[in-house]
Computed example of a mutant assay.
Amino acid sequence: MKNLNESQVILVDIGNTRVKYSLLSHAEEEPNACEDARSLFNFIDSQKKISHLYIASVRNQEMVGEISTMCNERNIIFVEKHTEKEAFGIKNSYDNVQKMGVDRWLAMIGAAEKAKNAFFVMDVGTAITVDFVVSGQHLGGWIVPGFQVMRNALVASTQKVYANDEIPTTFGVGNDTEDCVASGCHAAVYGVYLSAVDYISSKQTDFDVILGGGDKKVFAFLKSADNMRLAHLVMQGLARYARSELLQ
C-alpha cells in the first residue's frame, strides 16, 4: 500500500488477563499493556497518524466491538484476525479451525518466521499452550494450566498449603511450604517443556524452540539454548499478517 509505513499500524492482543498493544514498527519489542479500550485509544489518539488496527482476541468480544466502534469514529481501518486452515505455509491440523484459539494460530505464524527447522512454540501465560510444526504441518498441541493457575488451584483445594506470589527464575527445591509449592509448580511447567522436547525429538532431529508469553521468565534458568528463541508471539503473528497485507 503506497505511502503507508509501520508506525501507522497498531497491533492489539486481547489475552486472558491483559490487553497488549504495539506499533507494527515496534513488534519485536516488549508490548505495552492496558486495562480497557479507553486507555488503548488514549495512546492511539496521541499518535495522530494510526490508519490501521489489527486485533486478535481470545476472550472479550464485547471489547472487540467497542474497539471496532472507536476505530470507525476515527476512520481507522479495523482488521480482526481469526484462526485459519492454512497460511504462510503452515497447515492447521484442526478439522474445525474455529475451535483453536487465535493466539495459538498467531503464535505458530510468528514462530515459523523465526524457526530454521521443525519447531515447537510454547506460550507461557494463564494457560501454557504448546504446538508442534514439522515441514509446515501442524501436528497438534497441548493446553496446560499455567504456573499461577496451577499454584492457585493447589492452594484452593488443600488445607494447610500456602503459597506466595513469587515466580521462580532458578530451578530448585523448597525448604518451606510456600517455596515447595512454587518449586513444585515450576517443576511441573518445566516438565511440559521437557515432554515437548522429547515429543518433537521423536519426529525430527533438528528443531527449534520458540518461547513466549507473559510468564516465560520461568525458563530463565535454561540460559537460552542455541535452538531457543524468545518471542512476543501473538504480536509477531499479527505483524506478519499486517506486513503481508499492507506493505507488500
Rank of each mutant, 00 (worst) to 15 (best):
V144P: 04
P145H: 08
F147T: 03
R151D: 06
N152A: 14
N152H: 13
A153G: 10
A153F: 07
L154M: 12
S157M: 12
S157A: 14
T158L: 10
Q159S: 11
Q159W: 08
Q159I: 11
K160P: 09
Y162A: 12
A163L: 11
A163S: 14
A163I: 10
A163H: 13
N164S: 08
N164F: 00
D165N: 10
D165P: 01
D165H: 06
E166Y: 04
E166C: 07
I167T: 11
I167W: 07
I167C: 04
P168K: 00
P168Y: 01
T169I: 04
T169F: 05
F171C: 00
F171Y: 09
V173G: 13
V173R: 12
G174D: 03
G174C: 03
G174A: 06
G174Q: 02
N175L: 14
N175K: 13
D176P: 06
T177F: 07
E178T: 13
E178D: 14
E178P: 15
S183Q: 13
G184M: 07
C185L: 05
H186E: 01
V189K: 03
Y190H: 15
G191S: 02
G191R: 00
G191E: 01
V192L: 03
A196F: 01
D198W: 04
I200N: 06
S201L: 04
S201Q: 09
S202L: 13
S202V: 12
K203H: 15
T205G: 14
T205F: 11
T205R: 15
F207G: 00
D208L: 05
V209D: 05
I210P: 06
L211T: 05
G213N: 10
G213E: 09
D215L: 10
D215V: 03
D215N: 11
K217G: 08
K217V: 06
K217E: 07
F219G: 03
F219D: 00
F219R: 02
L222S: 03
A225Y: 06
N227E: 04
N227M: 01
M228D: 02
R229T: 13
L230K: 06
L230N: 10
A231C: 06
A231S: 14
